[in-house]
Design a protein around this nucleic acid. Structure first.
Lengths: 141, 141
DNA sequence: ATTTTCCTTTACGTAAACGTCAACCTTGAT
DNA sequence: ATCAAGGTTGACGTTTACGTAAAGGAAAAT
């Protein structure tokens, strides 16, 4: 039975275009241990798994994760099957911390959204006043 | 009529303690134009407004805003009253972009929360299996 | 009086996350 | 054959957000 069906592959520039990053960035992520592309000669060949990792890494970045943090999560996740008790408890600990971070961020975002709405309203008010002023000027001038 | 009631003030270390940052950080933020403390001789005296700005700056950081971005938002907000039409439209533009950012972050966070939950579950499973294994060993050993 | 305790400025150092060459394959198209 | 397009490895440069002394003033506690 064939347990490893041949999956899609991607070139470095494929991924660069898809995620709007430079190839330099992708090679840097590999150097930092976040990606593990196969090689065809010298050339890097990326699997769907690499692609997902890149995606997760970039999302992590948007959420303020350092590359090292993302790598730690990847490594931990990969070793869940072989991890010993201590490792697993450590991982649960980290996961709980990340969840707490995310809860905090949710609060932060919600507050900021309110404030942005307020600022927008205030801004629209100021704008309509400016425009009324302009009309008055036209009339009198 | 006294339109400027004397409000609470804070020393630099007051704020440093409250927000768990170093005084170096606070001085740096001033240098970058984010804070504008009064002076008593050489010593900096922080107003509630400064305190709020520090708070907002730090929250911005947690959400991935650079100091320059936060400063831009502060400056814009301060000038809403005097801003001309062009300025105001520009500001609305920026605000809409930030809102879009925040919507994206919300999605990011929700996905990550799901994945963290999955990872946690997987981790607990692995943990219980490890523990069962231990018990079996005790019995047989 | 002198020693802490805060505060100040100035200035150089640093880690993270890439950007930006340079110098070099290789491979398909003209 | 050559040449443009895309790939590779160094290696040094850059920005952001501070850290870390160094050197000193001023006030409060002993």
């Amino acid at each position: 039975m064939n347990t490893t069906p041949k999956l899609r592959t991607y070139s470095i520039s494929d991924l660069a275009k898809e995620f709007d990053v430079t190839t330099r960035t992708i090679r840097f992520y590999e150097q930092q241990g976040l990606l593990n592309p196969a090689r065809q000669g010298q050339t890097r060949i990326y699997s769907p798994k690499d692609r997902v990792r890149l995606m997760l890494t970039l999302r992590g970045k948007r959420l303020g994760f350092s590359l090292a943090e993302s790598k730690e999560l990847f490594d931990m996740y990969d070793s869940t099957t072989e991890g010993d008790e201590k490792q697993l408890l450590y991982m649960l600990n980290i996961l709980e911390k990340k969840q707490a971070d995310m809860r905090q961020q949710l609060r932060d975002i919600q507050r900021l959204q309110e404030e942005l709405n307020n600022a927008e309203e205030r801004c629209r008010d100021a704008l309509s006043k400016v425009r009324v002023g302009k009309r008055q000027k036209q009339k009198t001038g």
